[in-house]
Amino acid sequence: MKIKDYIGIGILIIVIAAMPDLVGNDYYLGVLIFTAFNCLTCTGLCLLMGYTGQISIGHGAFIAIGAYSSAILTTKLGWSPWTAMGCGVLLAAITAVIVGIPTMRLKGHYLAMATLGFASIVHIVSVAAVDVTGGPSGISGIPRLQIFGFALNSDTRNFYFSWGVVVVGLYLAVNLIHSRVGRGLQAIHGSEDAASSLGVNIAVDKIKILVLSAIYASISGSLYAHYVLYIDPGPFDIMHSVLLVTMVAVGGLHNIWGAITGAVLLSLLPEFLSFLSEYLQGIGIRYQTDYDTLIYGSILLLIMLFLPEGLFEGLSRSLKSISGFRGKLAGRSSERAD
């Protein structure tokens, strides 16, 4: 139901409003800003993967396109950040169409392979085209964003702004899901044959949703560039693309809130792990950073084994069945009372 989603967005807004005071520490606020960027990308990716059933292992490339467009156009050509961001969106949309057209007509996992290849090309270009991208040393001196002369020059401001964008992105996605277009996308996921027998133009709709998800990723990349003020190819490698897919899958593919849950949890996990390592070191156990990967992997494995529909659906179903069980107990005792 749409109402539930709107309530969810309302709760999210309240949490966002309270967060900077609760955190009160610029480092963690920074972590939460990066979390917002991941949430934004995962919202778009969830529309593509969870709702339409098309897998992309290359969304890091669309983030890179946004980030590099913003960085290059502002630092080298002196464009305004907003125009640069718009250009990034346009470029991401065009490349999405180019990647999408040859693969979307085919059934199966061709898109996954094509996006994977595409992502490695973008990564190689970002490393090798030193004149344009700065190569491995990257681009620095990226200006901050200004909103009507109001500079995003503190972590609190950046926090509110980036989460504000997430809320808008979520609102648009939720509306789309519950519309004629969104039902068409879910139908494609359910059965391409049945969807097209009812008049859904599956090839075109698949490309449209790939473009939309690329736009989400590109905006997230631009925001990243204007927050960090420096970019290099590092954060946009294949591993980041895979991590994004994992975030969406861990949270629960068929639910936009699952994607958000997954993005938040996996963005915060490194912080929990560093807590853990400090704690263990404190009590004299040697903790190696390699363990991070081990713990990461185990968490994923456990979730996939025990909550295959994802954390969000899985946990809410368990909660429901617990309350249903309580309800039954209550019902039985009232019968007895009769």
């Binding site: 139908a187 996921h189 359910g190 059965s191 859904v200 068929h254």
Partner: peptide, 14 residues
């Protein structure tokens, strides 16, 4: 080939 991920009503809405 029903859309098993959608409700019965949503299927017909498609």
């Amino acid at each position: 080939q029903v859309f098993s991920n959608m409700t019965v009503l949503e299927n017909v809405m498609v």
